[in-house]
Design a protein around this nucleic acid. Structure first.
Lengths: 155, 155
DNA sequence: CATATTAGTTTGAAGTTCGAACTAATTAGT
DNA sequence: ACTAATTAGTTCGAACTTCAAACTAATATG
């Protein structure tokens, strides 16, 4: 191994180690920020579910379960909690009355937007001082990770 | 809003939306990869704990609990499981016999290295085709996120 | 029209997490 | 030196999450 290679290795290790802890911390901060707001009764997991339902409006329970990789039973339990707290509503599909379409209530949409704004602020801070070509590189890095995930999953 | 600003906005949204799902998927893949190996009895959470103990050798139970932001009771339960499965050992500190120093067993170290190698491969794929200055930008982005987390936490 | 399939809920068991009470070891105060 | 206070880690019970299997209701199939 020469000096340049060692340097790159050190960079990779730095990035790898950084990434591990950052997400835990983001999760924790998201929850603690939300608990400072008017939405005190929401956990990080519930926030994640509200985010998913907001992003995928009026999807069925089964579809949302598949997206989040939760069992249907688990999702039903989570939905009961969020419905009780007034963040989501279950809409019986009139074409096929077995199907429930999930949607956010007004309160749920407010939470969704607050959460989304926080994410956006995080990304803005992350890319502070980056120019167009830097941002393009970042997008490429994310696409690379998605590809890697896809490859490993397919195997 | 002009055209350039809208484009940047779209980039931010793309990055923000990407990030949300990627980590869930990485967690899931880490667990499923590990279950294909000889370490079938390990969950994603346990893997995370083994990683932390490997990274912070011979730290006390309380220190590890603080790092992972788990209660001491929870950590004790997790350590019991990992000790039973043979991945970690508790070393009574001879200077102060209240203190337990945590360490990986040989088996635990093997798991740690396999997991670390997976992380490294992920980072390598992520940064595929990046030059030295691109990598520097990536590091900067991570430092920016850490700073943001620090600021929000301090408030 | 009976049967099979599908969507979602219920249920019970297993596992996780927390925080308070507890035990054992060490340190501080007098 | 002796008592009290503190500290490290464990135990315990309650609350919550998760899953998978059994179940109910609605729709599709042959």
């Amino acid at each position: 191994m020469n000096a340049i290679s060692d340097e790159i290795k050190a960079d990779y290790n730095f990035i790898s180690d950084s990434l591990v802890d950052i997400y835990d911390q983001i999760m924790r901060i998201e929850e603690s920020e939300i608990k400072k707001s008017r939405f005190k009764d929401i956990t990080a997991k519930e926030l994640h579910l509200v985010h998913t339902i907001g992003l995928h409006d009026r999807k069925t329970t089964s579809e949302v379960a598949r997206i989040l990789r939760l069992s249907k039973g688990t999702l039903t339990a989570n939905l009961n909690n969020l419905e009780r707290k007034g963040y989501i509503s279950r809409l019986t599909n009139q074409q096929d009355r077995r199907i429930i379409n999930l949607a956010l209530t007004d309160k749920g949409r407010l939470l969704y937007r607050a959460h989304y704004a926080f994410h956006r602020k995080l990304v803005e801070q992350c890319l502070k001082g980056f120019n167009g070509s830097d941002i393009k590189k970042m997008k490429q890095a994310l696409v690379n990770v998605e590809d890697f995930i896809g490859e490993v999953s397919a195997k």
